[in-house]
Nucleic acid binder design. Structure first.
Lengths: 240, 240
DNA sequence: CAGTGGTCTAGACCACTTA
DNA sequence: AAGTGGTCTAGACCACTGA
């Protein structure tokens, strides 16, 4: 019985059925689901298959299971959501493009050195990019990566790589943590000019600090987005 | 053989082993993992158990499997990250508090009516809150929820509820999608005054639009954060 | 064609919870 | 003690890939 044409796995069907019951209100947060044994007999399936269906719901956060007790509709969690940073989703948009302004190997000034915990004048790679929509500049991206490997720096790929990935490539370090901070800042004269707007206008600042295994900073990225032209969207994670 | 004391499931061990090989560089993105059959004989386990271990890695995004081809170490994806919105994490912070400015049932003006797809003058619930850090205002939260149930509006809970959850409570609708937009905007005179700053200063605007099952808007929330005092942090999702 | 992962079965023993 | 979910087995057929 395991297959049928226009194939939908049984466990998937089971998960959809339960979802429907939640959406329709037949099952509410806190309610207990049928036991695995009950689902087996209801659907005429084996226990592993029933569990596979439940696992889907558990992974989505819609259901929680407790050994010895049962499976229950979870309380919805709304505060967490997924979002995509501009550095990698930008080139997927219509009318959007990325312009590489420059790649240099420079001595770190005091600010960069302090953030990356380097001595002043240590060598860092600086990459500057401009994001454009309909040929108008909307965001400026400046990245600093500590320099200790001779890697080919300029590639086409560089236009599209997410920052932590880029850091991993250049430093050769694998285990990485990415810390991101959002804030609203006024544009200074210099930035305003590059973004084709005026000083003091609000900008969305997205700062990324990438850490290697021993919590040592490996890279620093600041994206400045013209507040009048750029908005960042996020996707809901949860179901209800 | 399925249990031992200080119990660690075999499938978990298997996943950890593979992770180690990725972190140590023995396996690199793009490399093929041992086939399921190989893992079975290597570990002396059945195929379902091996698959359960691989599933862990697939769920984490570290491994991708392709029918007929094999399982491979995935390219790390860094662009997606989790973040928490201020409306629910605020009260967890040190020195932070929430002040309820008011709850009213008002007729929707043309803006609100348009966003929520209501007729002008339809009744909506408006909730205004002020977020404070060290007794200084840092963010202003205005929420509009369509009114069609008599629910107790003012509760202690309201200070801490995430917006979509609140909407669900008041409208009685279960299936919900939350669409969030971030942008940087200049403060107008009125808002600047409420946040104790001056007109034109940048603010981080977090706009949430909550939809019910048939894509009908149920609630609208705008959080305006003083750019000089508020920053939003996000957590890395991915592994490498 | 042989090899891969995807689905599924019909059992089993276990740890834990509740009564 | 009975019921629950967690782990595990030793098979099976399938769809898909690549030589």
């Amino acid at each position: 019985m395991k297959t049928s044409e226009s194939f939908i796995p049984i466990y998937f069907k089971l998960a959809e059925d339960i979802k429907q019951q939640v959406f329709s209100g037949k099952l509410k947060p806190g309610d207990m689901l049928p036991t695995e044994a009950q689902l087996c007999s209801q659907y005429g399936i084996s226990r592993m298959t029933a569990r596979q269906g439940l696992k889907l719901l558990v992974d989505e956060g819609m259901v929680e299971s407790f050994r010895g007790k049962g499976s229950f509709v979870a309380q919805p969690k709304f505060n967490q959501l997924m979002l995509e940073l501009p550095d990698s989703h930008f080139h997927l948009q219509e009318n959007a493009s990325v312009q590489l302004l420059g790649v240099d190997i420079i001595p770190a000034d005091s600010t960069v050195a302090s953030v990356l915990k380097l001595k002043t004048n240590s060598k860092v790679i600086r990459i500057k990019k401009l994001y454009l929509t309909e040929n108008e500049p909307v965001a400026l991206d400046t990245r600093y990566i500590i320099y200790h490997r001779r890697q080919p720096v300029v590639e086409n790929e560089i236009n599209y790589a997410a920052f932590p990935k880029e850091v991993a490539r250049h430093t050769g370090v694998a285990l990485i943590r990415n810390q991101v901070t959002f804030s609203a800042v006024p544009l200074d004269k210099n930035l305003a000019q590059q973004l084709g707007t005026t000083e003091g206008k609000p900008a969305l600042q997205i700062e990324q600090l990438v850490f290697g295994g021993q919590e040592q900073p490996l890279g620093w990225s600041i994206i400045i987005c013209n507040g009048e032209k750029y908005r960042m969207n996020a996707i809901t994670k949860t179901y209800i």
